[in-house]
Nucleic acid binder design. Structure first.
Lengths: 348, 348
DNA sequence: AGTTTTGATGAAAACGTTTACGTTCCGCCG
DNA sequence: CGGCGGAACGTAAACGTTTTCATCAAAACT
């Protein structure tokens, strides 16, 4: 509107007070009479004054911004996560600086470094971070919380979804539904989530079907690898009665392999996935899966981070876990569905 | 690592030069001998010096950050858009400040205002912005580009996807495939995209099937509204041969309505959508749709914004358009598919 | 009435940079 | 040999805040 942006001095002059008083009024510090307060507010409004955040940060040392560094993530997961973080951040009056799509250690390190000084805290989700990474790239005084990470460093709390309990629950459900043999399609070797889910599978099998042989085939989270895994399973001498894939995309790939081979799902073989991606609802048969509220994950991360920033940090439980829920749909054979009147799924 | 963060003074002392020289070296301004340069670099490295961005912004007036304010968007669209922007921004050495999930004018206005001073430019996607909004909430000297907006203000260039051409092409395709009558499921009344797509539908029909009567039913972009629209269409005296929904979710809803009624797709009625969301590939029959590279949209927006920021903001063509492509799948009846060997869809 | 307490206010320092301007030194030309 | 130009470098001002401290008046005590 005006040609030059107004500074605190302009406001002070306009209101006939000192800049100190302006600062006090605008920051609600008290120690000002109602009249000066009114005068300052009026002047500020008239001049469209907005405090310069750079100057403010310089002196206070706070940016009121938190940074999120994320890998090149699968769409839905990404957007839900950001939404959760963003919403919680806004509620706390914080801004969100995002840096995503990192596909290498160096890339992630650069991202973390360039955020230095621009943020009051960080939320990091990256397969590349470990203790060393943090020590080398994070200023020691910068609060950070890790997402979905195996790192157990007391300085950096982490939030994980409860992969093992979720996987365990799903395997239990499959066994309970009457499928005696359950095979598992694994994720990429180095992936933490995959490892945890496999652990859950092993645990459930060991506990509930101790005499059954474990049946684990390789995969890499891609739909195509699920397809290949599906064919591999079909080629086995004794076909499993159910397949539990470490993520939904592989489950879908597997589903296509079965369809192609004329195998009926769930009548001949049941299938279940993990993640509850949007697609799971729309493939046919709709996919039973394990769901985790990703937005909640983001929200929890931010809340934990703000606690850290406010110094309420730590002591004890510095790692939190988010519950996972089994979502029963058609593909596992336990769904009560009136096939005749198939209503549209819930709105997204 | 070190207990206190190093400032430029520390580096100067360590390198036995003045702070001015340190600044010159680190900013590559020249006017320094190779020796001092080396000394400074060594000192900076030893101290793990990182320039304070707040102080830098304060004096230079630049933040090297661009802001994106977005509505509470559909997942996939959102993540793709952010990815496009983020990638392009990083390539230009810019940071990305995100504020999403705004569901009201006041909300969006607040977001824009609080970004003031924190960013060098903004990318705005919001149904609430119009000329007034911008004049009231944007500092006049802050470059901004609008996404998918009807605003035609010379001060704010905008980038739109070519909704009308895309819709036109899809209708043409449906007609060419032999479906004589094409109905249209509209989007929410106030929505710009919806309006443009309707416009494309009208244009194509008027041009290619001038004697056919227009058949437009209401919808609001939700899956459920698509379902209702589908039932409405089935109840018509003379059923259309093809349905073109203003977005994919409605097309999916419509598909379910047809399935429920025992209508075969595409044999009895063809269906097409708009957006090419991930699901489109996975419903059965897979959904023909109009695709636009959302990441490109984000990238273009950022590139345009940086041009503006560098002062290359020229008069004339201040609004750009992004091409849309018809994606032919099974639901429109023109797809050559070997149903016997249905391969898994392309990886995402 | 004199003294202390209280509360509002302003002056000025500090935050860590960039940059305009001086200073110094050296080599070169006249 | 004296002056001059330019390169290298340093000094200090400026950016717009917050915050400490001093000041001062008025109210509250003795």
């Amino acid at each position: 509107m005006t040609t030059k942006k107004a500074t605190i001095k302009d406001v002070a002059r306009e209101a006939k007070v000192s800049i100190a008083s302006v600062s006090r009024v605008l920051n609600g510090l008290g120690g000002v009479t109602a009249e000066t307060q009114a005068a300052v507010r009026k002047a500020a409004a008239r001049l469209h004054y907005v405090p310069d955040s750079a100057a403010r940060s310089l002196i206070t040392g706070r940016t009121h911004t938190i940074g999120a560094v994320l890998p090149d993530l699968y769409g839905e997961f990404f957007s839900e996560l950001i939404r959760g973080i963003d919403l919680a951040a806004r509620a706390k009056g914080l801004h969100l600086l995002v840096s995503s799509s990192h596909d290498g250690v160096e890339d992630a390190a650069a991202a973390v470094r360039t955020m230095r000084g621009r943020v009051d805290g960080m939320i990091i989700l990256s397969e590349f971070v470990d203790g060393d990474f943090l020590d080398h790239n994070l200023p020691s005084d910068l609060p950070a919380v890790l997402l979905d990470s195996p790192v157990d460093n007391p300085r950096y709390p982490s939030i994980n979804m409860d992969n093992v309990a979720g996987a365990q629950a799903m395997v239990k459900h499959l066994l309970d539904t009457g499928h005696a043999s359950v095979a598992f399609i694994n994720g990429p070797a180095g992936n933490y989530d995959a490892q945890q889910r496999e652990k859950g599978y092993r645990a459930a099998m060991g506990q509930l079907a101790p005499k059954a042989k474990l049946n684990i085939v390789a995969g890499d989270f891609s739909e195509e690898s699920g397809y290949r895994a599906g064919r591999e399973l079909l080629a086995q001498a004794k076909r499993p009665r159910a397949v539990f894939a470490a993520n939904d995309m592989m489950a879908v790939g597997c589903l296509y392999a079965f369809k192609e081979a004329g195998i009926r799902v769930p009548e001949d073989i049941a299938i279940a996935g993990f993640d509850d991606i949007l697609i799971a609802r729309y493939v046919s048969p709709s996919l039973s899966t394990v769901s985790v509220s990703i937005a909640d994950l983001g929200k929890s991360a931010l809340l934990l981070l703000t606690e850290l920033m406010e110094g309420k940090g730590h002591a004890g439980s510095n790692t939190r876990t988010l519950r996972c829920d089994v979502v029963v749909r058609e593909s596992c054979g336990a769904h009560q569905t009136n096939v005749a009147t198939k209503h549209p799924p819930a709105l997204v």
